[in-house]
Amino acid sequence: MDASILTIQPTSPEPIYRQIVEQLRRLIAGGQLTPGEKLPSVREVAGFHAVNPMTVSRAYGLAESEGLLERQRGKGMVVATGQGISRSENERMQLLEPHLHETARQARELELPADEVVRRLQQLLGE
C-alpha cells in the first residue's frame, strides 16, 4: 500500500491519529490490507498528507497496541498476522455500526423518509 490509500480530513472533530487507526481497522477487516503487508513509513504518510509525523507515529503506535499492526525488524510496520479476512462478517459489520447509527441519527434530524435514505445507500454500495 502507499500513503494515498488513507484519507485525512483535518477539519473533522475526530483527531487525525484516530482517523488513521479507524481506516486501518476497516482496510484490514475488509481484506484490502493483508497480514504481513508493509505499511508506508511515517515519513511517507506525513509527507503525502502534509501532517505532523508525530500524529502518524501516534496512530501507528495505537494500532500496534491494539494488535492491528506489528513492528518488524528492518521492515517497519506490517499488518499483524492473525488480522484480516479471518474476521467474520458479523465482526466486520460491528465496525460499521457506529457510522450507521450516526447516519440514521442525521437522517431523522433532517426528517428524511427512510426508503429514500436506504435507496441512496444501495446506490452507493452498487458503485
Partner: peptide, 14 residues
C-alpha cells in the same frame, strides 16, 4: 500552502 505545511510538519517531526 500544502507545500509549506509539509515543510513545517516534517522539519518539526524529523
Amino acid at each position: 500552502r500544502r507545500d509549506l505545511l509539509r515543510e513545517v510538519a516534517l522539519r518539526a517531526g524529523e
